[in-house]
């Protein structure tokens, strides 16, 4: 295999990986606040894409109106999940919250299927499918756009977590009881994380919807997103970005080498191997925080 091809595989791996990161950032936001991997992030992402379609195609709004409006709708919806489904679970075993997120995912899949049916729809962002040559390397414009959105969100959240509101959210992530003791509203903080994760879901939903069409399979992004989030450490946004890049490269380059031997399908095997090995060898991922030993 020649070097240009290898470089092209790697560069496209990075871009695809950043699209996984885009999804995984939502998982990280909720993990920070609720200490559970949100199993409904796939459902939220799909719902986000459908809401954009409903506003843009069914109601005829221009995309530049439909997308921010969908973000607002999904933000409120995410806050609502905390209020209706999670608030009463505060202080209960984490596994119950995990099961609740699974329930929400099933609910979202059922609802979107009932409302919008099973046929795939396209987003039509208006991004050209003409491939773009960067030097000798061929890249897809929509992947480039998605990667830029992922990096933008990363920067926005890094800055956000330094604001006073962001500091309070990090305090909640550290210790619910201590937060309550100084008057921080843990409930509102958790709600805010769900709202923000739902906005992330809208952006991931649009990009992935543009790439593979909007249908039920969008919710399956959860599997790759979770792998990325786990590798990154579940509660680190920087970890999610870096893990996405690493995983994207391994997946893209690895599958190009392996597919001829196994007759296709090696992408899923690579994902599975990364997830299993991470949990076995490095349970806190690349950047996950470990609990500090107290003296």
């Amino acid at each position: 295999m020649d070097l240009i091809l290898l470089a092209e595989l790697a560069v496209n791996g990075v871009l695809t990986g950043l699209l996984y990161s885009l999804f995984a950032i939502g998982l990280v936001l909720i993990y920070k606040a609720s200490s559970v991997p949100n199993l409904s992030q796939g459902g939220l992402t799909m719902a986000g894409a459908y809401v954009v379609l409903a506003l843009a195609h069914d109601m005829g709004l221009p995309l530049w109106v439909a997308i921010p409006l969908a973000a607002v709708v999904m933000f409120v919806f995410g806050m609502g999940i905390e209020r209706v489904a999670l608030r009463r679970l505060a202080g209960r075993p984490v596994v119950m919250i995990l099961m609740m997120t699974l329930g929400i995912d099933i609910f979202l899949r059922g609802t979107t299927l009932a409302i919008w049916g099973g046929t795939s729809r396209s987003v039509d962002l208006g991004v050209s499918y003409e491939p773009l040559f960067v030097g000798d390397i061929l890249v897809s414009r929509i992947h480039l756009l998605g990667a830029a959105v992922a990096i933008l969100l990363f920067v926005v959240f890094v800055l956000f977590f330094r604001t006073r509101l962001g500091i309070r959210l990090r305090a909640i992530a550290d210790d619910y009881m201590a937060s309550w003791s100084v008057g921080i509203s843990v409930e509102r903080g958790v709600g805010l994380s769900w709202g923000l994760a739902s906005i992330v879901a809208v952006s991931a939903g649009i990009i992935w919807g543009e790439i593979q069409g909007v249908d039920q399979s969008l919710s399956l992004l959860l599997l790759k997103g979770l792998t990325v989030a786990v590798l990154g450490g579940l509660d680190s946004i920087f970890g999610a970005v870096l893990a996405g890049i690493i995983l994207g490269i391994i997946e893209n380059v690895g599958s190009a080498y392996l597919d001829p031997f196994v007759g296709g399908g090696s992408r899923d095997l690579i994902m599975a191997a990364v997830l299993i090995l991470t949990v076995m060898l490095r349970p806190h991922g690349l950047f996950g925080r470990t609990d500090i030993e107290r003296v």
Partner: peptide, 16 residues
């Protein structure tokens, strides 16, 4: 002594 472990002392004070 339940401080916010992953925050700095300065951020601990701001959070409260």
């Amino acid at each position: 002594r339940r401080v916010f472990e992953h925050l700095t002392p300065d951020e601990n004070l701001e959070a409260a």
